[in-house]
Amino acid sequence: MTEAVLLIENLRKSFGGLVVTDGVTLEIGPGELHAVIGPNGAGKTTLIHQVSGTLTPDDGRILLNGTDILPLPPYERAKLGLARSFQITSVLPRFSALENVALAVQARSGSSYSFLRPAAAEAALNDEAMAALAEVGLEHRADIVAAHLSHGEKRALELAIALALEPKLLLLDEPMAGTGPEESERIVTVLKKLKGRFAMLLVEHDMNAVFALADRISVLTYGRVLASGEPDAVRNDRAVTEAYLGEELE
């Protein structure tokens, strides 16, 4: 149990009378890619919010490499190695792609209380940022202002930012949302390449991508884990097929 990168135990959250997370327990081992699927409103994004710290659960525990992270604000969790990509693209629109990533490199290397030296001239920051951009295939767009990138490029930039943080665990909130088939393909390729380097929690609607990538899958409905296991087992689980997967897998 202790070797789990992420351990979620009996997590509960409700808004007024609406229970959105209902006793969720989930474990992700080192290098594992764990996908969470489920119909809209099943509480997937809410789960990500609670892990990253933008929402506080009512009950339960979340351990990152054995550390209870619930009392910690988002920036402390990030320092412990938790990175996250957002469902709605959330890069810094007026920063160049490179500077977006350099900001992430800067967050984990050295102090940011340096006031006089121009950050853009720091080769160490730029090199690492460039390497992260290259991993997602954006190196040729490094100097473009993020606001001018295409939607798919912004999603890739989100990944590059997460990579630059050298996380222990990466939370991916629908990385394929709103991208065309070609761009989705590209992101799947990138994620495949990254698999094994760190643990990932993937929330995604694109079932092809999920089954292509996931080591384990948990199915969430009404805030509960309906089933959890290896992709094939989940695919053949009758309860899952009836509740949710059937129509989407045709």
């Binding site: 990253s52 710290g53 933008t54 604000p73 988002p74 920036y75 990030a78 320092k79 990175a83 996250r84 957002f86 959330s90 890069v91 810094l92 629109p93 007026r94 920063f95 500077e99 350099a102 900001l103 992430a104 800067q106 967050a107 984990r108 050295g110 102090s111 940011s112 209380y113 340096s114 006031f115 006089l116 030296r117 121009p118 950050a119 853009a120 720091e122 930012i161 943080l165």
Partner: peptide
Amino acid sequence: RAVVYSRFGRVFRGARENPTRMATIGYDV
């Protein structure tokens, strides 16, 4: 001018653009 372009300034400017994102990268905005 120096401060704006420094490491600190980069964080300071970033906080204006998107404080939530800055926090999830690990900055105490």
